[in-house]
């Protein structure tokens, strides 16, 4: 087979648009993911207030609690930006600190979600109880899964950086992880607004 004689890192291929292939891929993936969350949110909205039995949204939601965890997740977008700016400056120590901080804030959010789910279950709301339980757990659960994947990506980069194997020239990796992370945050803003802040009374009783 044909291969270059030596370079492990071939010169970056020039693209037609000038946009890096992987960055374009990430944007298109996020567009696709919009359709994914869009369909889940549409399902939630269609079934909102149509549960046959309780518990209903207003009986189990703890808005202040969830607001705090939403705030934690939003702050993680800030630390993500700081991580990217650190690697752009070549500050690998800063990169590691902020990567870890972002992953930590994400973990607090997911932990908070786990605790919230447990509370709901204790109050009698499960996947099977009613439409509210079904749609709530599946929608927020898939968002939580996205955050978890993000945490794994961030920790992986942290480990690679900690072993000194991430070079400042490879900042695109952090940029792409950041794109994903911010997207997942934005999706939470939508879910938080739609699910928690604009809950409607149940109309089927």
């Amino acid at each position: 087979m044909i291969h270059a004689s030596s370079p492990a890192h071939p010169a970056p291929v020039e693209t037609t648009t000038g946009l890096n292939n992987r960055k374009l891929l990430m944007w298109i993936f996020l567009g696709s993911d919009c359709m994914f969350f869009g369909s889940l949110i549409a399902t939630y909205l269609l079934y909102r207030g149509k549960s046959l039995v309780g518990p209903y949204a207003h009986e189990v939601f703890n808005i202040p609690y969830t607001s705090i965890s939403a705030f934690v997740l939003l702050m993680s977008s800030l630390t993500m930006v700081l991580a990217l700016s650190a690697i752009h400056r070549g500050d690998m120590r800063g990169l590691k600190v902020w990567l870890l901080a972002t992953a930590l804030l994400g973990t607090v959010f997911v932990g908070g979600q786990y605790f919230e789910f447990t509370t709901f279950v204790n109050e009698g709301l499960t996947l099977k109880t009613n439409l509210f339980g079904t749609t709530l757990f599946v929608l927020t659960g898939f968002h939580g899964a996205h955050v978890t994947v993000g945490i794994i990506i961030l920790l992986s980069f942290y480990l690679v950086a900690a072993r000194g194997r991430l070079k400042p020239e490879q900042h695109l990796n952090i940029e792409l992880a950041g794109l994903y992370w911010h997207f997942v945050d934005v999706v939470w803003i939508v879910i938080f607004t739609v699910v928690y802040l604009t809950e409607t009374p149940n109309i089927v009783t």
Binding site: T43, L46, Y47, K50, S51, L52, L127, K128, N130, L131, T134, T135, V138, V204
Partner: peptide, 13 residues
């Protein structure tokens, strides 16, 4: 998992 998305008996449509 026994959810209700498409089950009319659980309110699903």
């Amino acid at each position: 998992a026994g959810t209700n998305f498409f089950r009319p008996e659980g309110g699903g449509d």
